[in-house]
Measured scan of single mutants.
Amino acid sequence: EPELVFKVRVRTKDGRELEIEVSAEDLEKLLEALPDIEEVEIEEVEP
């Protein structure tokens, strides 16, 4: 069974934007590691 992958769009407080694809596990780590995120948009990517 393929692992869930999420497309994550992040905007930081200083206005930088970042778009990455991460696994569910990595997404959890990412959110814990970035306390200064202003906006996060997450969508599931079809395998």
Rank of each mutant, 00 (worst) to 15 (best):
E1H: 12
E1P: 11
E1A: 12
E1C: 14
E1Y: 12
E1I: 11
P2E: 05
P2K: 10
P2I: 09
P2Q: 08
P2S: 07
P2N: 08
E3W: 09
E3S: 09
E3M: 11
L4S: 05
L4D: 02
L4A: 06
L4Y: 09
L4W: 09
V5L: 11
V5A: 06
V5K: 12
V5Y: 11
V5Q: 06
V5R: 15
V5E: 01
V5M: 13
V5P: 02
V5D: 01
F6V: 04
F6H: 03
F6N: 01
F6A: 01
F6E: 01
F6S: 01
F6R: 03
F6T: 02
F6Q: 00
F6D: 00
K7R: 12
K7F: 04
K7T: 03
K7Q: 03
K7H: 07
K7N: 03
K7C: 08
V8N: 00
V8H: 00
V8R: 00
V8L: 07
R9P: 00
R9Q: 00
R9K: 06
R9W: 03
R9D: 00
R9T: 03
R9I: 04
R9H: 03
R9G: 00
R9L: 03
V10W: 15
V10N: 00
V10L: 11
V10F: 15
V10Y: 15
V10Q: 00
V10G: 02
R11I: 07
R11C: 08
R11E: 01
R11G: 00
R11A: 02
T12M: 15
T12N: 03
T12S: 03
T12E: 01
T12H: 06
T12C: 08
K13S: 06
K13W: 04
K13R: 10
K13I: 05
K13D: 02
K13P: 04
D14Y: 07
D14H: 05
D14T: 05
D14S: 07
D14E: 04
D14W: 08
G15V: 00
G15C: 03
G15L: 01
G15N: 03
G15P: 00
G15H: 02
R16A: 05
R16H: 07
R16P: 01
R16Q: 07
R16G: 04
R16Y: 07
R16V: 08
R16E: 04
R16K: 07
R16N: 05
E17A: 07
E17F: 14
E17G: 03
E17P: 02
L18C: 13
L18D: 01
L18R: 04
L18E: 03
L18P: 00
L18A: 03
E19V: 14
E19I: 15
E19D: 05
E19C: 12
E19R: 13
E19H: 12
I20S: 01
I20Y: 14
I20E: 01
I20D: 01
E21H: 12
E21G: 02
E21K: 09
E21D: 05
E21C: 15
E21N: 09
E21M: 15
V22I: 08
V22E: 00
V22C: 11
V22F: 03
V22N: 00
V22G: 04
S23M: 07
S23Q: 05
S23R: 12
S23A: 08
S23G: 07
S23W: 09
A24I: 08
A24G: 06
A24D: 02
A24L: 11
E25L: 12
E25N: 11
E25M: 13
E25P: 07
E25A: 13
E25I: 11
E25T: 12
D26Y: 08
D26H: 07
D26M: 10
D26K: 07
D26L: 08
L27G: 01
L27R: 01
L27S: 00
L27I: 05
L27D: 00
L27Y: 04
E28T: 09
E28F: 14
E28D: 08
E28N: 09
E28M: 14
E28A: 13
E28I: 13
E28Y: 14
K29N: 05
K29D: 04
K29A: 09
K29W: 09
K29M: 07
K29G: 05
K29Y: 06
K29I: 05
L30H: 02
L30P: 00
L30K: 01
L30N: 01
L30F: 13
L30T: 05
L30M: 07
L30G: 01
L31M: 06
L31P: 01
L31A: 02
L31F: 06
E32D: 08
E32A: 14
E32H: 09
E32R: 14
E32I: 09
A33Y: 09
A33M: 13
L34V: 05
L34D: 04
L34P: 01
P35W: 15
P35G: 15
P35K: 14
P35N: 14
P35H: 13
P35D: 13
D36Q: 06
D36M: 05
D36P: 05
D36V: 03
D36N: 09
D36W: 08
D36A: 05
D36Y: 07
I37P: 04
I37M: 06
I37Q: 04
I37F: 12
I37S: 06
I37H: 09
E38G: 08
E38H: 08
E38C: 10
E38L: 13
E38A: 09
E38W: 14
E39A: 11
E39Y: 14
E39K: 10
E39P: 03
E39L: 15
E39Q: 10
E39C: 12
V40S: 03
V40I: 13
V40Y: 13
V40K: 02
V40D: 02
V40C: 14
V40A: 04
V40R: 02
V40E: 02
E41Q: 10
E41G: 04
E41K: 09
E41T: 13
E41D: 08
E41H: 12
E41I: 13
E41W: 15
I42A: 03
I42Q: 02
I42S: 02
I42N: 02
I42P: 02
I42H: 03
I42D: 02
I42W: 11
I42V: 07
E43T: 13
E43C: 11
E43M: 14
E44Q: 11
E44P: 12
E44N: 08
E44M: 14
E44V: 14
E44F: 13
V45K: 08
V45G: 05
V45E: 05
V45Y: 08
V45N: 06
V45I: 12
E46H: 13
E46S: 12
E46P: 10
E46V: 12
E46A: 11
E46Q: 13
P47I: 11
P47W: 08
P47N: 10
P47T: 11
P47Q: 10
P47K: 11
P47D: 07
P47E: 07
P47V: 11
P47Y: 10
